[in-house]
Nucleic acid binder design. Structure first.
Length: 243
DNA sequence: CGCCAGGGCCTCA
DNA sequence: TGAGGCCATGGC
């Protein structure tokens, strides 16, 4: 099985994901048009905020935090730069790690005051990535989520699900490095930002409800091609033989 | 109660 | 460069 085959199976199974979602009022919306048009500067800003807030945190907890920021009318780089740290952390409390994340948002926003989104759009993928990676609190996954979903540049986002799923499927060892894995995906897939967007979203969906830490292999379509399942089947067979 | 969530930073060897 | 600790809420 190749990476594109797995992608096609996931699309058949889960359908289009239309990431990255935007909060409208109190609703979190996923729209097909996100795949067809450029994001507005406001949307890009929201994607940056969301990408930081969702670090090791469930998205439902992030939605509340974003709504709080918007309803308190501080959802802009300038306002967030001005607000007291303690107030900011209280507004984003639901997203967890609120002291760290408040600091991260501050640093991002002060960066944005000196770097207009319209100017950032002109940078190469590499330079754009480096800009975000140089900020405290933004690592590979957060930077690449921003570059891919916000700026619509073809960078493959690797997360814990990607490592878990594809190491189980036998593509690489579980402890492989971020850049190694990203390189593997980018070299074995067409260079398409829309493909990367959908693929990452599908990986998250698959990792959440089937290929979990304790995987539900009985309901999984990849059974025959999964090294993880083969290994378990082997050790199970050995266990039976020995006992 | 324990486990996990759309990670990243710091420290110490 | 690898392993381990730390950050913290909310859903199940």
């Amino acid at each position: 099985m190749k990476l594109i085959d797995i992608y096609n199976l996931l699309v058949d199974f889960y359908g289009e994901q239309n990431w990255w979602p935007i909060i409208e009022g109190r609703e979190c919306v996923y729209k097909k048009e996100f795949m067809e048009r450029e994001r507005t500067d406001e949307e890009i800003f929201e994607i940056m905020i969301g990408a930081i807030l969702t670090q090791n945190t469930s998205w439902t907890n992030v939605i509340v935090a974003i709504i709080n920021l918007k309803e308190n009318n501080i959802f802009s780089p300038y306002k967030i730069s001005e607000i007291e740290n303690s107030k900011l952390s209280q507004l984003i409390k639901s997203a967890g790690y609120f002291n760290q994340k408040a600091k991260k948002l501050k640093i991002l926003c002060s960066f944005l005051l000196n770097n207009k989104i319209s100017e950032l759009k002109k940078l190469s993928v590499y330079d754009l990535r480096q800009k975000f990676l140089s900020l405290w609190g933004i690592g590979y996954e957060t930077a690449d989520s921003i570059v891919l979903y916000g700026f619509n540049k073809p960078v493959f986002v690797v997360d814990a699900y990607t490592k878990r799923i594809f190491s189980r499927l036998g593509f690489f060892p579980e402890n492989s490095e971020y850049e190694t894995i990203r390189d593997l995906f980018e070299k074995n897939l067409p260079q398409s930002s829309n493909l990367y967007k959908e693929y990452h979203a599908l990986i998250v969906e698959f990792g959440k409800n089937l290929c979990k830490k304790r995987p539900l292999c009985n309901n999984c379509s990849f059974n025959e091609n999964c090294a993880y399942l083969h290994k378990n089947a082997q050790s199970f067979a050995q266990f039976i033989q020995q006992s």
